[in-house]
Design a protein around this nucleic acid. Structure first.
Length: 499
RNA sequence: GGUCCGUUCGUCUAGGGGUUAGGACACGUCCCUUUCACGGAUGAAACACGGGUUCGAUUCCCGUACGGACUACCA
C-alpha cells in the first residue's frame, strides 16, 4: 500500500470518548504501516460547544497511549494551522466558489422559522427536508429575485450558505469496510455549509481541509456514514477526487443496545475515557483508563481488538506488532459491545510482563526496595491493576484483627493447636537465617518430629498469621513479616483462637 | 416516520457451499499447590427467522424480524 495521509479530527467539546481513541488508533496504525502520516486536526467550528481544556486532554490522551500525530495541533506541519477556527477565512472562499458556480445558494430562513416548519411537518407525521422539493417555497437566493437577495445581503440580514443538492441522481462510493454504498440524492437535504456566524459547518470544513491536507483515507466512526454521500457530493461540486472512506463499527454499551455512553460507564463502574476528566463547569469527575490502573499497552491491545482481529489466534500485540498486522479489510461491520472483563484480562496479561522492579518503585515506593520487590512478586499475578498494590501492602503488614471463622472451626483441633504451639516454641531457635527457604525447612522438621501432617496445619497457620484463609505463598510472607512479627502474630492467634 | 448500516456461543470473534463450526474472555469440572491466585487440561455454550438457488446452505440471493446510526446554522 502506498503511504497514506490520514487524520484524526476530534472536536474539543469534552473528554475524548474511548471510541474516538480507537478511531485514532486505527488511523495511526494505517499511517505507520504504510510509512504515511497521521494528522491531528481540531474541529472547533462550533463556538457554542467549546470546552476549555478539551484540546489539551486530547493531546495528552494520545500521548499517554503513544499514538502521537506526525502533523497537526501540537506538532505543526506544512498545512498549518490545524485548528479549524483559525482557518475560518479559508472556508468562506470555497463557499463563494460554490456560490459562483451555482452549486450553492444563500438562505435567509431563521432557525426559528425552520423549527416551526419542522414542527408542522412532524405533527402531520412527516419529516421536513430543505431540498429540491421545498427550497422554492423558502427564503433563499433561488426563490427570491436577484434584487431581493442583494437587498437582504446589503442590509446585513443573517444568512447561511446551503449546498444545492441535485433533485435526481444516485451517489455511490466504495467503503473499505462496507463495500458499495448507494444513496439517492433525494434523501439528502440542502445542508448548511456556512453558518450565519461565519463559521463553516463540519461538512464543508471537513471536505475542504481533507482536500487541502491531502488526506487519502478518511477513517471515522459509523455515525458519519449517512453524511458520507453528502461529502461525496461536495467533492464533486468542487471537482475534487474524494478520499477513500472507511466507516468503523460503533462501540456499544455492554448491557442492552446502543452507543456506549458516559452513563453506561457510571453504571458499570468502568471508564469510557482514556484519562480522568473533571468537568470545568460542574466540577464532576469522570473516570479514566489511566487512573483506573489500565496500562497503555493493554488499553491499545484491547481497543484494537474491538472490531478488528488479525485472523490468527494471537491475541497479545504490541503497538509495533499491530502496525504490521493491521488492515482495514479485516475490520468488522457490526458494532462491538464493550466488555470490561476482557479489558481487565488484557491488563493482567501486560501487568505480568512488567518488570517487578519498576512496579515496585512506582506503586509501593513506601517500602524498602528489596521488600517492595518481594512483595510485588508475591502479588503480581493476583491483581488486575497495579494501583491495588498500595492498599494491599498496607493490609499485608498490619496485624490481623479478625480470623477466617470457617477455617478456624474446621481446622482448629487439639492436634493442630499443638502444632501451632510447637512452631511458636521451636521455630525461632531452629531458624537462624530468617528466609522463606529455612522457614519452610524449620516447619517441616518440627511437624515431622511431632508426627503431624502438613495439610492439617498449614491453612490454620495461615489464618493465625494473616487472618485470611487464602493468600500468597506463606513462607515468603513470613520472611517479609520478619521473625518478631511472625511470633507476635502467632501468640496473638493462640490467645484469640477458641480454647 | 424516512434514509443508511448491521445480525456466528452470554461477550469479542475465526471460518465459509459439504467442517466434530475454531479461538479468547467469562462460567463449570479436574490437575498443579500449604490455601487462594497464576498456569495446564477439560466441559457446557452460537450460525435470528422464512423463502429461493443448489445434489447440498450457516456460507450466495430475496424477504421478514430484530438491533443500531443518522435525520440541527453539533461534530
Amino acid at each position: 500500500m502506498n503511504p497514506v495521509r490520514v487524520r484524526f479530527a476530534p472536536s474539543p467539546t469534552g473528554p475524548l470518548h474511548i471510541g474516538g481513541v480507537r478511531t485514532a488508533l486505527y488511523n495511526y496504525l494505517l499511517a505507520k504501516q504504510t510509512g504515511g502520516k497521521f494528522l491531528l486536526r481540531i474541529e472547533d467550528t462550533d463556538q457554542t460547544r467549546f470546552v476549555p481544556g478539551a484540546e489539551q486532554y486530547i493531546l495528552e490522551s494520545l500521548n499517554w497511549l503513544g499514538i502521537n500525530p506526525d502533523e497537526g495541533v501540537g506538532v505543526g506541519g506544512p498545512h498549518e494551522p490545524y485548528r479549524q477556527s483559525e482557518r475560518k477565512h479559508l472556508y468562506k472562499e470555497y463557499a463563494d466558489q460554490l456560490l459562483k458556480s451555482g452549486k450553492a445558494y444563500y438562505a435567509f430562513d431563521t432557525a426559528e422559522e425552520l423549527d416551526a416548519i419542522r414542527k408542522t411537518y412532524e405533527s402531520k407525521g412527516g419529516a421536513f427536508q430543505y431540498n429540491a422539493a421545498t427550497r422554492g417555497k423558502l427564503k433563499n437566493s433561488l426563490s427570491l429575485s436577484e434584487e431581493e437577495t442583494k437587498a437582504l445581503l446589503a442590509s446585513n440580514s443573517p444568512y447561511v450558505i446551503r449546498l444545492k443538492v441535485p433533485a435526481k441522481g444516485e451517489i455511490r462510493f466504495q467503503d473499505s469496510i462496507r463495500d458499495w454504498v448507494h444513496v439517492h440524492t433525494s434523501s439528502i437535504d440542502d445542508k448548511v455549509l456556512m453558518k450565519s456566524d461565519g463559521m463553516p459547518t463540519y461538512h464543508l470544513a471537513n471536505v475542504v481541509d481533507d482536500h487541502i491536507m491531502e488526506i487519502t483515507h478518511v477513517i471515522r466512526g459509523e455515525e458519519w456514514l449517512p453524511s458520507a454521500p453528502l461529502h461525496i457530493l461536495l467533492y464533486q461540486a468542487f471537482g475534487w477526487t474524494p478520499p477513500t472512506f472507511a466507516h468503523l463499527p460503533l462501540l456499544l454499551k455492554p448491557e442492552g443496545n446502543g452507543k456506549l455512553s458516559k452513563r453506561d460507564a457510571d453504571l458499570g463502574g468502568f471508564p469510557v475515557f482514556p484519562l480522568e476528566w473533571t468537568d470545568p463547569v460542574t466540577g464532576q469527575k469522570a473516570k479514566g483508563f489511566r487512573e483506573e490502573g489500565y496500562l497503555p499497552e493493554a488499553t491499545i491491545n484491547f481497543l484494537a481488538f474491538l472490531g478488528w482481529n488479525p485472523g490468527t489466534e494471537q491475541e497479545l500485540f504490541s503497538l509495533e506488532e499491530l502496525v504490521t498486522a493491521f488492515s482495514l479489510e479485516r475490520i468488522n461491520k457490526a458494532g462491538a459491545k464493550f466488555d470490561v472483563q476482557k479489558a481487565k484480562w488484557f491488563n493482567e496479561q501486560y501487568l505480568r510482563n512488567q518488570p517487578i522492579e519498576s512496579i515496585a518503585k512506582q506503586y509501593v515506593e513506601h517500602l524498602e526496595t528489596s521488600k517492595a520487590e518481594a512483595f510485588v512478586g508475591l502479588y503480581l499475578d493476583r491483581i488486575t491493576f497495579p494501583n491495588e498494590l498500595k492498599t494491599l501492602a498496607v493490609e499485608f503488614f498490619e496485624m490481623p484483627v479478625t480470623y477466617d471463622e470457617q477455617v478456624v472451626t474446621n481446622k482448629l483441633n487439639e492436634e493442630s493447636r499443638r502444632a501451632l504451639e510447637l512452631i511458636c516454641d521451636k521455630l525461632p531457635d531452629s531458624v537462624s537465617n530468617w528466609n522463606a527457604e529455612s522457614i519452610k525447612e524449620g516447619i517441616h522438621q518440627i511437624l515431622e518430629e511431632s508426627g503431624i501432617k502438613m495439610g492439617k496445619v498449614m491453612q490454620l497457620l495461615r489464618v493465625a498469621l494473616s487472618g485470611n484463609g487464602a493468600g500468597p505463598d506463606l513462607m515468603i510472607s513470613m520472611e517479609l513479616w520478619g521473625k518478631d512479627s511472625v511470633f507476635q502474630r502467632l501468640k496473638l492467634a493462640l490467645d484469640k483462637f477458641p480454647k
